[in-house]
């Protein structure tokens, strides 16, 4: 892959929940193109469809229509999977969700380690890398505690460590800093940016925190399922003006 290849490319994806009079159009003809190494922020009011968009790009909740390509590989055509989604997620995508989502019966370290082992890392190596990541996020002292014994912010940082564990080419974060103080929040955003730059990954971060926006390479706005704004780049063929 070279830098010309788009890390994330969506073409007119739409998502409709329900049917008939309960129908909700959560995503409407959303197109983005994000090259490798870039970090973008996704802003928008509650209910705008930010999480829905992230779950579509993250191959968790496929769109109703539209295409998604990751790293130049077409992966979804509407709801139809063109690759083994689970394997693709494991290898290429790292998630941090609105609520911290850790496995309650595993310690902080094991939560990170399991993602590495699932991707084929030998136990010892996975363990070492998990500790490095936790250290980088400042939660190494709590490595052997289970999620129930961690604060919301600590849980969120463990989740971030897990998301970065396999050096994904796509990082998707849904309000990752909501549980963190502004200093930590900024640190995490910078971490995303650095990881993206260093590994040639792309990151989409949903945030409400306008103080950290200068960290990002671009900003998308979202309202009623429609995306506006974005990058002014030559390869940027599908984003709206």
């Amino acid at each position: 892959m070279n830098d010309d290849v788009l890390a994330i490319e969506t073409r007119g994806i739409s998502k409709t929940y329900g049917a008939g009079h309960t129908e909700v159009v959560a995503l409407c003809d959303a197109s983005v193109a994000i090259p490798r190494g870039r970090t973008v922020a996704l802003l928008g009011p509650s209910g705008a469809g930010k999480s829905t968009f992230l779950m579509a790009v993250g191959l968790i909740n496929p769109p109703t229509t539209g295409q998604i390509a990751i790293g130049g590989v077409p992966v979804l055509d509407g709801p139809v999977a063109l690759v083994n989604l689970r394997r693709f997620r494991r290898k290429h995508i790292g998630y941090v969700f609105q609520k911290s989502n850790l496995i309650p019966f595993l310690s902080a370290r094991e939560n990170v380690q399991v993602a590495l082992e699932l991707n084929g890392a030998p136990a010892r190596q996975a363990r070492r890398r998990a500790m490095e990541l936790l250290d980088e996020l400042g939660v190494a002292p709590r490595a052997e505690n289970t999620p129930a014994m961690l604060s919301g912010g600590e849980q969120q940082r463990v989740a971030i460590a897990r998301a970065l564990a396999n050096r994904p080419s796509v990082i998707l974060a849904d309000e990752p800093t909501a549980a963190l103080d502004s200093h930590r929040g900024r640190q995490v955003m910078e971490l995303f940016r650095d990881v993206a730059h260093r590994h040639g990954a792309a990151a989409i971060v949903v945030t409400h925190d306008h103080r950290t926006l200068e960290v990002f390479d671009a900003i998308y706005q979202m309202e009623d399922g429609t995306i506006t704004g974005g990058l002014a780049l030559p390869t940027d063929a599908y984003s709206s003006p």
Binding site: I60, R86, F88, R90, N101, I103, A115, L118
Partner: peptide, 10 residues
């Protein structure tokens, strides 16, 4: 936890 494991690609 099982859904989460599936999510991270187990």
């Amino acid at each position: 936890s099982i859904a989460l494991l599936k999510l991270i690609g187990a």
